[in-house]
């Protein structure tokens, strides 16, 4: 097996980043990797900026991904992509849900929301897959399935077969929401395969 790899899932508290990381963890452990994932619970979950670090390889030590170390960043919102872009490795890929959720300092007018974030990041040489994951989630049947749409996009870039991901979704999602999430996954995956 190769060197340790890092994935970050970043977003806004309440967007379901924890489910996304659980599906990812299930895929990775199923592939026989050593896996560590660091999550943030508690205060930040209340609408704050949230980040989950996922590390895998033959032997993983630190559960954190540091600046310049992420092979992939899944950003559930574009301001969060800008916030965490410094964690992307040279040659890494940013997968971003190109959607704006204004943080409180923007809502109160204390600070501006930067414009053209995705374009600016692209100009800096980042490899980016931008999507309207919210529309895909709505198409799947529920806006809350953005998390699994994003996982679908990631799946198209990773080396593991689609079955492995499908199996992980069955493991991690409540049966009541399985069909919805399977559809969200497929829509994300198809979108990525088309745009690659």
């Amino acid at each position: 097996m190769s060197e340790t790899k890092g994935i970050m899932i970043v977003g806004v508290g309440g967007q379901g980043t924890l489910l996304a990381s659980r599906i990812l963890g299930s895929v990775l452990i199923g592939q026989g990797y050593d896996v560590k994932m660091s999550e943030v619970h508690g205060m930040s979950q209340r609408g704050g900026s949230v980040v989950t670090y996922v590390k895998f390889g033959e032997k993983v030590y630190s559960p954190l991904v540091d600046q310049g170390e992420a092979d992939y960043i899944l950003a559930f919102e574009r301001l969060e992509a800008a916030r965490w872009i410094s964690y992307l490795k040279d040659g890494g890929t940013l997968i971003v849900n190109d959607r704006r959720i204004s943080p409180m300092p923007v809502i109160t007018g204390a600070m501006p929301y930067p414009d053209e974030i995705v374009e600016k990041l692209r100009a800096k040489g980042s490899k980016i897959i931008a999507s309207d994951a919210l529309s895909l989630a709505n198409e799947a049947g529920n806006a809350k399935s953005v998390n699994v749409v994003m996982i679908g996009i990631l799946s198209a870039l990773a080396e593991f077969s689609e079955d492995v991901w499908q199996k992980a979704i069955v493991e991690c999602v409540k049966p009541k929401f399985l069909e919805l999430n399977q559809k969200a996954f497929s829509l994300g995956r198809e979108y990525a395969l088309k745009s690659l």
């Binding site: 609408g47 301001l79 600070m111 501006p112």
Partner: peptide, 10 residues
Amino acid sequence: FGETVPPRPP
């Protein structure tokens, strides 16, 4: 990113 990113407090 090169610009100030507004914080996102809870």
